[in-house]
């Protein structure tokens, strides 16, 4: 722990997380397929995990809390995506499509 074999600067890890987060957000807002939207969501949550793990090793006060937090996040994200896929399946059975544009019965 004291003598890392490969040293990565904190900034580049945070930068990677920020880029992944932004790609995920962009995907959620623009993708037209529900599966792709769910994958983009997963990308945002994983960016957070990179952040947490990077901070738990290279943060101001390194400790294991960040890694524990990341474990909880992974578990909860799995539950969320399971519900999401179930809903996509239900939507597919009703509309025979997983495109976002077909979810348009509710309009302003």
């Amino acid at each position: 722990m004291d003598n890392p074999v490969v040293s990565v600067p904190t900034g580049s890890l945070l930068g990677l997380a920020a880029i992944l987060f932004c790609i995920g957000l962009y995907g959620v807002l623009t993708k037209r397929n529900l599966i792709m939207v769910l994958i983009s969501l997963e990308l945002m949550l994983n960016a957070v995990n990179i952040n947490l793990v990077a901070f738990s090793r290279l943060g101001v006060a390194p400790n294991l809390d960040g890694q524990v937090f990341a474990l909880f996040t992974i578990t909860v994200a799995a539950a969320e995506i399971a519900v999401g896929l179930a809903l996509v399946l239900a939507a597919f059975r009703l509309r025979k499509s997983t495109e976002v544009k077909d979810l348009n019965t509710e309009k302003y």
Partner: peptide, 18 residues
């Protein structure tokens, strides 16, 4: 949730505690 967690991760990073 993802946005909230991203914010939390920064607070954890600069303080080292949750």
């Amino acid at each position: 949730s993802a946005v909230l967690l991203y914010g939390m991760s920064f607070i954890y990073g600069i303080s080292g505690t949750t």
